[in-house]
Simulated scan of single mutants.
Amino acid sequence: MTRSVPKYLVPVALLALACTLVSTYDPSPLQDFCVAINSSTSTGLNTLGISLARIDFASYGLNPPHTHPRGIEIIVVAEGTLYGGFVTSNTDNRLFAKVLNKGDVFVFPVGLIHFQLNMGKTNAVAFASLSSQSPRVITIANAVFGSNPLINPDVLTKAFQVDENVVNYLQKQFWSDNNN
């Protein structure tokens, strides 16, 4: 005797699989909160599933193109004027950018390349909130031109359609740690 599978069972199984995959992206913390007490001069809360940062920009300073593979970033400009934007991926590589003044808010979607540039002669300050306690950051130039070992210049000359001297020059620049 054969039994037929109810028609509703397949969609329910697919939905359960999709929910499982989504929930494994950035798991919930194992505890409600954890007070950091490693130092007598600083305290904070961990395991809340968010990150916060203050970004101080020098005159015409740049937060270079980078991505956060595990978190959405929201910035609020506290002082100065910033030019911020992000580029869509796997579509038309469209730039969404805006000049941001004091009090303005801008959202950078998870995983998309984005940047901020101080547009003024004075310092600027922004506060960033990220939707993950471990959003990671990958600075594009550091990853591409500062890899260890270096990416073969033939790959980069073809990818960026530039002369090999340009690639060699960029690979010789000082590139800071990209693992923060």
Rank of each mutant, 00 (worst) to 15 (best):
M1Y: 11
R3P: 07
R3A: 15
P6W: 08
Y8L: 14
Y8T: 15
V10H: 09
V12L: 15
V12M: 15
A18L: 13
C19N: 14
L21M: 10
T24F: 08
P27R: 12
P29S: 09
P29G: 08
F33V: 03
S39I: 02
T41E: 15
T43N: 08
G44S: 09
I55G: 06
D56H: 14
F57K: 01
Y60F: 14
G61V: 05
L62C: 10
H66G: 01
P69E: 00
E73F: 03
I74W: 03
I75S: 04
V77Q: 01
A78Y: 12
T81M: 03
G84Y: 01
V87C: 00
S89T: 09
T91R: 09
F96L: 04
F96T: 08
A97E: 09
L100N: 03
K102W: 04
V105A: 09
V110P: 04
G111K: 03
M119W: 06
M119S: 11
G120Q: 11
T122A: 12
A124N: 01
A126D: 03
F127W: 07
S129A: 10
S129Y: 05
S131T: 08
S132R: 00
S134R: 06
P135A: 02
I138W: 00
T139R: 08
A141K: 05
V144R: 02
V144K: 04
G146F: 04
N148C: 14
P149A: 10
N152H: 12
L156Y: 00
F160E: 11
D163P: 03
E164L: 12
N165L: 14
V166A: 03
N168L: 13
N168P: 04
Y169V: 07
Q171C: 07
N179P: 02
N179C: 08
